[in-house]
Design a protein around this nucleic acid. Structure first.
Lengths: 241, 241
DNA sequence: GAGTGGTCTAGACCACGGT
DNA sequence: CCGTGGTCTAGACCACTCA
């Protein structure tokens, strides 16, 4: 027996049910969910219906099938996504993780664009982190990261040197905040004096501007960041169908 | 009876079979393919297998299901894709088609980047079109379009004023070249003197550079174009999962 | 009402991963 | 060997479109 709107198809209600369970961390990231046969028996539906529900969750990237082993809740895997931006300069096409250097962190009143993106109440304070990403000591990206205070308060106790290069795994381990998807938007602009200095490029030269809103499984906003990098180092690829 | 590698699953061989038929224009764009029941009978497979094959073609965007009507071969619908780049400045979020003004067309030796993208033999000549796209008379995009001579030779007889605003429908109607997908890549740069003049912007201001390789159903390259537009007018959106 | 795609079932058999 | 997901079948019934 599955709850939910009776008018919806069974496999969709089952999809919602499983999706909710995963979002609630009933099954954790990296763990296997019950087998298809078990789910079919428990929810009293045919195995074909279970497969259809699971199919859609796989397509959404929430879970992962491993033939002969089971169906697993996916771990956050955003590490690679950032690399879509970087021009692969290394001959081997290496995917090195850029060094992350935190310049400043403060609790401050959130500007309106952060308020609306993180869905905060007007006048709320939020955590703002300024960070530089570097390859071989060369600045590649200047990031301004905004986090809601209520979910990330303990973060303020950290020293800049204690931040890891990749933040999302830390969000998951220390705060239980799993990034499931993100929306990005890209523009370019002539660099201003502040970022020209940070990125060590000539004032007025073109920079790519990347806005990213990172969301949890239940679509609630977790982090908003604005990044700038020298345009010459960026190339973004898309396939249109 | 379905041909193809016996080791591949049935539904995948059926997918390939249907895909080939569509690419060969056995069923034309806009027409319906046979019903699921008919296909199941003809190929002597169960209807579930037919549905799985059709599912994957739908996901690829080659065909489209219309409940109660049939399954149709998709028409090229690239008109909308270009708009992903434009900042919607109109309050209503209108999707107007920008005017296309052909500045120059010539048959000339293809540069190496065109050779490799269009898979031409070295030293081959190709058709090059310079075109400006405008909104309300304001230049938005300067395009340099490259086409293989063998497929598009009759195009050279056209006068600049005879070109339509949208080229892909013309490719389809006059040359039987259907654009099925495209690969794009985005960068930004400081504008050079030539494009500054064309786009009527200040020399050195940032422009978005969009490279697009347009492909047919069988993945052969049909058109390569390089477009530049003022960065302030562009915003590109992506969802990462 | 005839014909289409959409949902759902119950079960057989295969391919793969571990023990 | 067992348990997992992957393929495939044959058929019932529903929802939608159009004449």
């Amino acid at each position: 027996m599955i709850s939910g709107d009776e008018r919806l198809p069974l496999y969709q209600r089952l999809r919602d049910e499983l999706s909710t369970r995963i979002a609630e961390q009933h099954w954790r990231a990296g763990e296997a969910i019950p087998s298809e046969a078990e789910l079919a028996k428990h929810y009293e539906v045919s195995i074909g219906t279970v497969r259809k529900a699971i199919d859609s969750l796989v397509k959404e990237g929430m879970i992962e099938r491993l033939h002969g082993k089971g169906t697993y809740v996916r771990r956050a895997r955003f590490n690679a996504s950032l690399f879509r931006f970087f021009r692969m300069q290394n001959l081997a096409g290496e995917r090195r993780i850029p060094e992350g250097r935190v310049l400043r962190m403060e609790l401050t009143e959130a500007p309106s664009i952060v308020i609306s993106n993180l869905k905060l109440a007007p006048g709320t304070q939020a955590i703002n982190i300024s960070r530089l990403r570097l390859f071989d000591g060369n600045p590649m990206l200047a990031e301004s990261i905004w986090l809601p205070h209520d979910r990330f308060a303990p973060l303020l106790a950290l020293k800049p040197s204690e931040f890891p290069d990749l933040l999302y795994p830390m969000y998951e381990q220390r705060f239980g905040q799993v990034i499931a998807s993100a929306k990005e938007s890209l523009t370019a602009e002539a660099v201003g004096p502040l970022h020209a200095r940070l990125l060590q490029i000539e004032a007025g030269s073109p920079v790519m501007v990347i806005e990213r809103l990172a969301l949890g499984f239940d679509q609630h906003p977790i982090e908003w960041r604005l990044s700038r990098g020298p345009a010459s180092e960026f190339r973004y690829h898309v396939e249109i169908r």
